[in-house]
Structure formats: structure tokens, C-alpha cells
Design a protein around this nucleic acid. Structure first.
Lengths: 199, 199
DNA sequence: GCCTCGATGTCAGTCGCTGACATCAGGATA
DNA sequence: TATCCTGATGTCAGCGACTGACATCGAGGC
């Protein structure tokens, strides 16, 4: 490794590259090691070579640093739903959206997702934030379905069902000793839901 | 009105009756008038003739003062589900629970619920708290179903469906220009869900 | 080489929330 | 009746999340 590269890495401070990413990484590490409550924003910022004030310029609050990617996920889902063939039934369009999210839930990000999820599971405030993010996803999917001509309450109910499938698939994806990929998990969870509703 | 009664009402301060209730009332009034963010806990306490410290002895945080009744609601739902005839299908047991909640959703409390709900709708943090309370209700219902011999994932799915019905019924109940009572709204919303699922 | 502009730092302040300790009212007890 | 005990409340000090106002820095355009 060249001296120049070492110099860059060693000086991950003010005006260093990817301040936002450094904050996200530092936050997850500290939340995982010492717990969310026992971590101060000042500590996260210091570990990233920045100040508390800068943290709050990048993230609305101490929780949001764990949910920065949720807009990307929403866009993936929405595009997947919108891009389904117009002949597809609502639930199939939602399934297409969930499968499109495999761009985010790939093997490289599994470890990150596992760490993040264990942090969230350990704290009530973070679980609250996660719930409202999931509700926002459901709302975005419902909007997209309406734009496809699906009327209420079918649009919102289908979206809710889709999020239920998402949760089951995601729980399994981050579970230890799991060898299936995102697509298989989505398809399997959806099949289970269909079987249950049909019975 | 006797002088004694006036004296009592006028001195709703330290060691006055129902400190907790006074805090809840003051909080709702201030949240409704000036907004949740623009209201400080010290102001709520002062209006109730108490101090900020006492507020936090009665409620875990500034949001919780609006959700104090959720334990009662949970108990009503759980008892309603548990008390359904053992021959009843899971979804019918859940329906029994929702109908049992009519003890809380009666005409006298409608105005209070409307004010409370408009405060919650206006603030993201309060919506987060509401979501986790609803999730807790679903979880309690699912537990009760399991104790009735319903296995997973039917128990949790039925509970989620029940909460979906609850939300629809509640939204309609607090909507203006609504003349139906809680029981009719629950039955109607459940019928809609059944029709949608069957189609 | 100067200027502008966005990102960051600094500082002071408010408010949510907590622990430790003091105080008060009312009921039990001697 | 005087005393004591207990639970509810008050007081005080302090931490940490979050914000507004203003200063400073670095990189790119002129």
C-alpha cells in the first residue's frame, strides 16, 4: 500500500472523503459494541473525525443514521412495482417490487444487515423508527398500485400484505444458518401467505 | 356550588386529587392548542399544578402521556379474544376481542379520541409511538390466539389482520360526520376485509 | 492570485430526562 | 394525642440530544 493511500486513510478527518459514510460506520460500530443508549453522538462524530454538529447536518437525529438507506430501498420497490407488466395482478406487481429489492439484499450486505438488525432489535426507540419506515414503504407501494389503476382498499391492503411478506423474508434473510438468497426467500414467503389466505 | 367545592377545584395543586389525570388533560389541551413540539413538559406540569419532575414520575416520556390508556385497551382485547367460545375460528375470536373494546369506544369518549387523534396525526414522533402500540396489541392478540391452540403463522397473521380491521374501524369512528357505533364499524370493516380476501 | 460556495467547526442555549435528597400529607400505631 | 411511616411531591444539579448564529476552511472558477 502506497504512502499516499496510508496518508489518506490516516487522515479521515475534516474534509476527508465520505464524511457521511464514516459517520454511519462509526455509529453502527459503537451502537453494536456499547449499545445505542450508552453511545453519545459526540462519540460517533469523534470516531469519524468530525464534530457533533456535523453529525446533525447529515442526519436528522441519532436514530436516522441507521436508516439512511431506506429511501433507496423505497425507490427500488416502487420502480419494481411500477415496472411490472400491466397485465400483472396487484399482488404480482408487489412481488416484482420485492424481487427488485434484491439489488440491496445481496450477499455482500448481509453481514452489515445482520449487525444493524441486532442493534435495532435491542432498542425500543429504534424499533419505533423501523416501524414507521416500513409503514412509509407500504404507503409508497400503495400509491404506486393506485397509479397502476388499483383502487382502494385493495391497493393499501395489497401493499400491507406485501410488507408482511417483506418482513418475513427479511427476518429469514438475516437469520443465522440461512443459505437461501433474497429472491428465493421472497418467493417462499409469498407462497406461504397465499396458502394461508386461501385456506 | 358550595364554597368547599370551589376551594377544592381552585386548588388542584400539590396533593390535589388525580394528579395523573390532570397531567393527561393538561398535556392534551396544550398539544392541541400549540402543537406537540411547541409544548414543554414544564408547561404541562405547571398547568396541572405540579412540577416537571412529577410528570416524569407518572409517564416515561413526553409522548407516553397520550398513550396511558393503551394497557386497558390491550386487556380488553385480550379478554375478549380469550373469552370467545372455543369453537370460534381464530378470526372470529379476534372479532370478539374487537367488539369487547366497545367498552372504551363509546360516545362519551369520542370527542376525547378525536382531539387526541388529531394531535397524533400532526406529529411524526407521536405516529411512531402509535405504531409500536398497535404492534404491541397485535403481539398480545397473537399470544392469546396461541394460548387458544392456534399455531403460527396463523396466529400472528390473524392478529395482524385484526389490527388492520381495528385501524380501519377506528379511523371511521373518529371521522367527523360519522353516526355509526363501534360495534357496527368493527363488523362492517371485518366484512370488507373478508370480501377482499375471498375475491 | 482572488472569490465564491459548500462543508465543517465553534459556541451558546433550550429542552427532555434522571439521580439524589429533602419535604409534605395522611394514615397507622403506641 | 403525639409519633412514626410511607408514598407522593418538590428541589437541585447534571447529562445529552438537538438547534441557531456565526466563523472558518478548502476546492474550484474567474
Amino acid at each position: 500500500m502506497s504512502a499516499a493511500v496510508i496518508a489518506i486513510i490516516g487522515r479521515m478527518t475534516r474534509w476527508g472523503p465520505d464524511a457521511r459514510g464514516r459517520l454511519m460506520k462509526s455509529a453502527l460500530e459503537l451502537y453494536a459494541k456499547r449499545g445505542y443508549d450508552q453511545t453519545t453522538v459526540a462519540e460517533i462524530a469523534e470516531r469519524a473525525g468530525l464534530t457533533e454538529r456535523t453529525f446533525f447536518r447529515h442526519f436528522a437525529d441519532k436514530k436516522e443514521v441507521l436508516f439512511a438507506g431506506s429511501n433507496d430501498l423505497r425507490d427500488l420497490l416502487v420502480r419494481g412495482v411500477a415496472g411490472a407488466p400491466s397485465s400483472a395482478a396487484p399482488i404480482e406487481a408487489v412481488a416484482a417490487g420485492l424481487l427488485a429489492a434484491s439489488a440491496v439484499f445481496n450477499e455482500e450486505r448481509r453481514d452489515y444487515s445482520m449487525r444493524r438488525q441486532s442493534v435495532i432489535a435491542a432498542n425500543a426507540e429504534l424499533r419505533e423508527r423501523e416501524l414507521i419506515k416500513l409503514a412509509a414503504l407500504a404507503s409508497a407501494i400503495a400509491d404506486t398500485l393506485r397509479r397502476r389503476g388499483v383502487s382502494d382498499p385493495a391497493a393499501s391492503l395489497t401493499a400491507e400484505a406485501g410488507i408482511a411478506v417483506f418482513r418475513v423474508a427479511f427476518d429469514r434473510w438475516v437469520a443465522a444458518h440461512n443459505e437461501l438468497g433474497w429472491s428465493e426467500l421472497v418467493r417462499g414467503s409469498l407462497a406461504e401467505l397465499k396458502a394461508l389466505v386461501a385456506s
